[in-house]
Amino acid sequence: MRSHRLLKQLAVSLSGRGIHVLRFDYSGCGDSAGTWENTSIDDWVKDISVAATELKDLAMIDSLSFLGVRLGASLLPRADLESIPSNRFMLWDPILDGEQYLESLMQLQVKLVNDKLRFKVSRSSYLDEHDELELAGYPVSGGTKSQLSQINMSDIKWNDKQVLLLYSHNKEVYLDFAKRNEGVELKPLSLQCNWESLDHLESQVQVPELAAIVKKFMI
């Protein structure tokens, strides 16, 4: 939601340079079929392969580059892309530790229901009233919760891929990750994206330099 406009503008900019671009929504997200409760992280990983195959076939191109945002950046290395020549990955603020991420989302949900600026009537009992797990307003199945907590990017094998990691926060964490993963290039972004901030939950992410960074990496 927060990056939709920015990615659209990026797509328009890249297509203006003759580059075919596919943006897609994972199953159960955005315009895609399904619901959050009935889809899983594994489904989303498969969706990446499906999207990649679709673009390759539609545009009749030989190789692909990928831009993954946040959780998408963490899922990208797990996708089955063997049949698709793809040697450039751009990872924007990837989730390195699924357990920590899940914890931050659960804390966000607590802050959300206790947000006095948003709720004039107290909703602090909401979490006790309902059994389903809800993360930032979206219902999540137990399976998805478990898979989310298992995400760990320390075991990724990059092989011969060019990897550019864009970060807007957690500089030390990403620096450490780059040191332990040979071939990962780091690039700081000019603005914080505040991904799990309650105050920014519904605001569009702005990264003025994104198009220039992506074009430079790809061309």
């Binding site: 948003r118 009537v121 909703r123 909401y126 309902h130 307003g137 979206y138 219902p139 519904e202």
Partner: peptide
């Protein structure tokens, strides 16, 4: 509905 917020953030 005084319980809800402007964008219906909560699933229920």
């Amino acid at each position: 509905n005084k319980n809800t917020d402007h964008t219906y953030r909560l699933y229920h």
